[in-house]
Simulated scan of single mutants.
Amino acid sequence: MSKTKLIIALDLETREQNLSLCKNLAKNNLNDLYLKVGLRSFIRDGVTFIKELQDLGFKVFLDLKLYDIPNTMLDSIKEIIKLNVSMITIHASSGRRAMSDIANYLKDNSSSLVFAVSALTSFSKEEFKEIYNDEINKAILNFSTIASECGINGIVCSPLESGFIKNNINNILTLTPGIRPISSDFNNRIIMDDFKDDQKRISSINAALKQKSDFIVIGRPIYNSKDPILITKYIISKLKEAK
């Protein structure tokens, strides 16, 4: 993957708000990016919403973070690929058997990329330790190694861990939520607001690029801004200029 790609998270309150944003992006020829449809949006808006986004020219990242027994996960993947989405997420902690079964099936039946979630970016180091009884960086590297051995395309991780994973595992993609653009990302040409939310392990665009992220996910800083189109243009330009 030659250039870092932008994924816009569609986490607005209503289907109409999400669709309005996407139509505005398409009208401004900003559809050479991915749109993330998460759990709330998919439950609320369904399969027809995905088709509407695809008809606007966007690639869809269906972020359901599947985590169940291997057979149930594989059966779910078989249904998901009928939607022709570009990217899918599962949990790395679902285990080697589930990941291997899914990777092997997709290899022969779909061009969709599958990413394994390592540790949710809402986890602090202390919270992760409480649940997994392990140090977060050590566990993320272990998740990533197993996922790579199973044939999974990439890892969902915070930007703080992307470079660490890339330096230890060859030929694996990283997808990084928790990106919070700051004014210095754009040489102060545009003033960014300081967003407060539940993400703990976050970074700027510059930091994510330095850590070799292949995909960056940005939601609220775009759609809650005064000019979502302008900010999207600046982000895409920034990514294209990056070496």
Rank of each mutant, 00 (worst) to 15 (best):
S20G: 01
I7Y: 00
E13M: 03
L12A: 11
I8R: 10
S20C: 08
T48G: 12
E13F: 09
G38W: 09
K3M: 00
Q17G: 02
E16I: 07
L10Q: 02
L35D: 00
L30D: 04
A9G: 14
L35W: 05
T14G: 13
S41D: 14
R15E: 12
V47S: 04
D32C: 09
C22Q: 02
K23A: 04
L6T: 09
L19W: 00
F49G: 03
L10K: 06
A9D: 01
T14F: 01
A9N: 08
K36I: 09
L21H: 05
G46R: 04
L19D: 00
K3R: 00
K51H: 10
S2Q: 12
F49Y: 12
K36F: 03
I50T: 11
L33R: 03
G38C: 03
K23L: 08
K23T: 07
D11Q: 09
L19H: 11
E13R: 11
R44I: 09
N31Y: 13
Q17I: 06
N31T: 13
M1Q: 05
L21A: 07
F42D: 04
G38F: 12
L25V: 08
T4E: 02
L33C: 06
G46A: 02
L30V: 06
L30H: 08
L12C: 05
R15G: 03
